[in-house]
């Protein structure tokens, strides 16, 4: 079977600082991949390269077998405005800071993409928007502005907003890191439900328990490279690499059930 997302030899530098140093990754349709790594290891940058919020310095990204951008001959690729829009219509993203549009209600946030970008009729978009808000448990908040929503509610609206574009792949960049502990659960439940419905997802997270229970595959990113990957059992319970073990020990407040004595 052909991967839905295929990353080859991905590099990204900011000036002299090389952040991603050659990542290869194939993602199959329906797969949920958790990406772990220390602060500064390049997790956000990797995700942002996938939807071209950052343009890769080298390497290729293919969606559904189609390589994005035009080859410029010297190993570099050119991404046109149309390429950017085409990719982002198919790849949704959820941010750590939610980034809802504060001047729009929850429903307006959700339908903004379908109406403005896809040119869908408003009535149709609103029906879809209400359905998605209902899905994330916020149907009664449709006409409320973000400032009056809790962090967890805002993040669920942000998830609905990304889903409204009907993407093939969803990216989550530490979707729960900015939330008060008691609000983390409701957002993780929404993400988990998506995984169970077969959404293809790349999930950057520090919630190891969540990664263990929800991910099909876990990737440990270290200094811009995939240092170790495998099933949650392999990477989280029986890691081969010393770096991975070190990282997991740093998350000592969490105990995997299997590891408990």
């Amino acid at each position: 079977m052909q991967p839905i997302l295929s990353i080859r030899d991905l590099h990204k530098s900011f000036g002299a600082l090389e952040v991603i140093k050659g990542v290869d990754l194939d993602v199959m349709k329906g797969e949920a991949i958790a990406i772990l790594g220390a602060s500064g290891s390049g997790k956000s940058t990797l995700l942002r390269c996938v939807n071209l919020l950052e343009q890769p310095s080298r390497g290729t990204i293919a969606l559904g077998g189609q390589t994005i951008g035009a080859d410029r001959g010297n190993g570099l690729r050119h991404y046109s405005g149309a390429d950017l829009v085409a990719v982002r219509k198919r790849v949704g993203m959820v941010f750590q800071q939610f980034n809802l549009f504060p001047h729009m209600t929850a429903l307006q946030n959700v339908i903004e993409g379908p109406v403005t970008v896809k040119g869908r009729p408003r009535a149709e978009a609103e029906a879809l928007g209400r359905k998605l808000l209902d899905k994330v448990g916020l149907s009664e908040k449709a006409d409320v502005y973000p400032a009056r929503l809790s962090g967890g509610q805002q993040q669920r609206v942000a998830i609905a907003r990304a889903l409204a574009m009907e993407p093939d792949v969803m990216l989550f960049d530490e979707a729960t890191s900015a939330l008060d502990p008691e609000l983390v659960g409701e957002v993780l439940r929404a993400i988990r439900q998506l995984a169970e419905e077969g959404m293809t997802m790349l999930i950057v997270t520090h919630e190891l328990g969540f990664a263990y229970h929800v991910a099909d595959r876990v990737i440990f990113l270290h200094q811009g490279l995939i240092h170790e990957q495998g099933s949650p059992q392999e990477v989280l319970v029986a890691p081969r690499e010393a770096r991975t073990r070190e990282f997991l020990e740093g998350h000592g407040q969490f105990r995997l059930p299997d590891r408990a004595p």
Binding site: G81, L84, G92, F98, G113
Partner: peptide
């Protein structure tokens, strides 16, 4: 405006005129 507003607008596929006008 927070950088995140630009990111969010781009991430749902807006081009420059759209994100300027709408966001």
């Amino acid at each position: 405006l927070a950088r995140g507003q630009w990111d969010a607008a781009r991430a749902i596929g807006m081009n420059y005129p759209q994100l300027m006008r709408r966001v």
